[in-house]
Design a protein around this nucleic acid. Structure first.
Lengths: 198, 198
DNA sequence: CTCATAAGTCATCGAACGCTGACTTATCGG
DNA sequence: CCGATAAGTCAGCGTTCGATGACTTATGAG
């Protein structure tokens, strides 16, 4: 393992950038911050990524957890909640990347990115499940709930949600999803048990 | 009306600051931007408010629309949706101030502000309505939905929600709220009619 | 071992940032 | 009309920002 490793250095910059951009947002993050965090000279950011903007684009490319769309359909919503609530997002400062990226939502590029991700991952999958006329709207309403839960949990830090595990939310989520989608939805997705509601 | 009017100048600065901070977030907004927008010398910001930070604090003091907590309890949720969806928030760039303030959520002060506002306005009012054990959690879940709807509408710009009026959401909201709170909730709050769902 | 090349460093640029203190000018009671 | 005072202007401070180009040093093929 050579001490001078282009790919390794690039990776360290990307990792530090992901964390900074998630925690502080695009504008409050300086390239010098990222360089300091990763122990890399700031100049290399421009050598490897071209500009701060391009580094942001590459760093905020989310790799959503696999398996979300796999498994029983009636457990889809439960899996989504687990993705938002229980998944380990330390790479993004402990928040769901979509939630973290809202901090940079002054920039149209970031907004477009969020929109594409929300539609591709949540709305589209839920629309396929929805019965009846305004399936799109109801899919978006359920997606809005997922996003809102993530925000109140990690950004706003509302007392009960901040401490809740996915298992605590499961029964409520199942009931609402069943009602909103017009077909029975399961609250529990096979997983090691979290704490249950009191 | 004197051409030199301290209070009027202060008010113009506040107005411009509110818009800029809402649209671009705290970090992307410079005091020179605000001064240019309001046609006021930038120096006066420090004379009148002390610092950019204090201007932000004062500018982001939300005056939530009166009448939210007044009226029939079973229409509370419907009124909240109208506040998020139909209310005229042009003063804050067209978004609910809580949603806009998420753009500055890298700063703990702003987060605390959002938390206080969300709890005081939404969670507390909803908790009083909730029946049963984990009333707090269910109140927060419903609050999360309100916030999520605002975000998907104006920040993310998801297709159906972006065009929706409160009346389109009313039936869905009523059903979910009834289910989540454990008591019947009305979807319609007496208002001039918007478009109805297809 | 040599040395071309790639990886990493350094000095610095011009612009923009928040903020300050000294200055100019309009306003209005006397 | 006059002068004290408040409102508004101006030049510029120290710092930080994103970004550039010339430089140094480690690496590995020959």
């Amino acid at each position: 393992m050579p001490k001078r490793d282009r790919e390794a250095t690039r990776a360290r910059l990307l990792e530090a950038a992901r964390l900074r951009f998630a925690r502080e947002g695009y504008d409050a993050t300086s390239v010098r911050d990222i360089a300091r965090d990763s122990g890399v000279d700031a100049t290399l950011i421009f050598r490897y990524f071209g500009s701060k903007k391009q580094l942001f684009d590459e760093a905020s490319a989310t790799d959503l957890p696999a398996g979300l769309l796999e498994g029983p359909q009636e457990e889809l919503v439960a899996r989504m909640v687990r993705t938002v609530v229980d998944h380990d997002w330390t790479k993004y400062g402990g928040e769901h990347p979509l939630v973290a990226m809202l901090r940079s939502s002054a920039h149209e590029d970031a907004r477009r990115r969020i929109r594409e991700e929300v539609c591709a991952t949540y709305v589209n999958a839920l629309r396929d499940l929805a019965e009846g006329e305004d399936a799109e709207l109801r899919a978006e309403l359920l997606s809005a709930w997922m996003v809102g839960i993530g925000i109140l949990r990690s950004v706003v830090g509302t007392p009960a949600l901040a401490e809740a595990r996915a298992a605590d939310l499961a029964p409520h989520v199942a009931a609402v999803a069943t009602d909103l989608l017009g077909r029975p939805m399961s609250g529990t997705a096979d997983r090691e048990g979290g704490s249950s509601r009191t």
